[in-house]
């Protein structure tokens, strides 16, 4: 019986259990090998595909490594100035309240230059989703210190390590915005293991559902690697992330939506 099972007979369309969603464009991702941005993109697109939202979606790309997200996501998108994505998304959502609107932002974009826009969009309870990829560094510009950089962590602009006395502490903006009544669902996840990928996808689904139910702002932080900026291999960077990032940025739900 088993002999009949050839590679060819298994690899048939009807047996396909996983493949890249067609809502990712055919274009090769511009990210470094092993970078979590790719997985984060794919999960958002999987959810949009599964919830049949492509024609309802308007996404906002940030300035950061994911500035070209619109090259990879087959949806209508706007590219925002550095840090301004939540304001841009506010403009979209206020004028097209029935569309599904999200921003995709890095930690420099969201928690440094765009802190004001982030907090006030959250505080107004804009009915949007914010997907926040925190890699503790400015990836795009070559690995400079971010507000999320860990104490003593070496970066291009903290070459002797982040001295918290003069350079400040890692900013836990996710905990901060969870305190605001305008946010309905606030969670921190990662995409470095299969189990975490599954959890992150569930979180994204929940965030999208909150928006469809008009519950307010959902905020999904994804703690991710920047192996280039951290100067490690992808596997090393994921291990380093578990050991060093997670104690400061613990995973899990911070605020769950009210039923």
């Amino acid at each position: 019986m088993e002999e009949e099972l050839t590679r060819e007979s298994i690899c048939q369309q009807e047996n396909l259990v996983y493949s890249r969603t067609p809502l990712m464009t055919p274009k090769a991702l511009s990210y470094c090998p092993g970078c979590g941005h790719g997985t984060a993109h794919r999960l958002i697109m999987e959810v949009i595909e599964e919830m049949n939202l492509q024609s309802q979606t308007i996404g906002v790309a940030p300035v950061g490594c994911s500035v070209l997200a619109y090259d990879f996501l087959d949806i209508d998108m706007q590219q925002a100035a550095h840090g301004r994505a939540p304001a841009v998304a506010t403009g979209i959502k206020r004028l097209l309240p029935d569309k599904f609107v999200f921003t995709y932002q890095g930690d420099g974009d969201l928690a440094a230059i765009g802190t004001g826009e982030t907090i006030h969009a959250c505080n107004r309870g804009e009915n949007i989703c914010i997907f926040f990829v925190n890699n503790g560094i400015y990836g795009m510009t070559g690995g400079q210190m971010a507000p999320t950089t860990l104490p003593n962590m070496k970066t291009a602009t903290s070459p002797y390590g982040r001295d918290v006395v003069s350079m400040g502490y890692p900013l836990k903006i996710t905990e901060m915005i969870a305190m605001l009544p305008g946010t309905c669902f606030v969670t921190r996840q990662s995409v470095h293991t299969p189990a975490n990928v599954r959890k992150t996808k569930k979180a994204i689904q929940k965030a999208v559902q909150c928006q469809l139910d008009k519950k307010g702002l959902s905020f999904v932080e994804i703690v991710s690697n920047c192996n280039s900026g951290w100067k490690m291999t992808p596997l090393e960077s994921n291990k380093w992330m578990e050991e060093n990032m997670f104690p400061v940025f613990p995973l899990g739900d911070i605020k769950v939506p009210k039923p």
């Binding site: 706007q78 100035a81 998304a89 403009g91 004028l95």
Partner: peptide
């Protein structure tokens, strides 16, 4: 700053 970027978002629609 937020105002003009909200305008951007709306205008792009």
């Amino acid at each position: 700053i937020a105002s003009i970027h909200m305008v951007y978002g709306g205008a792009a629609c």
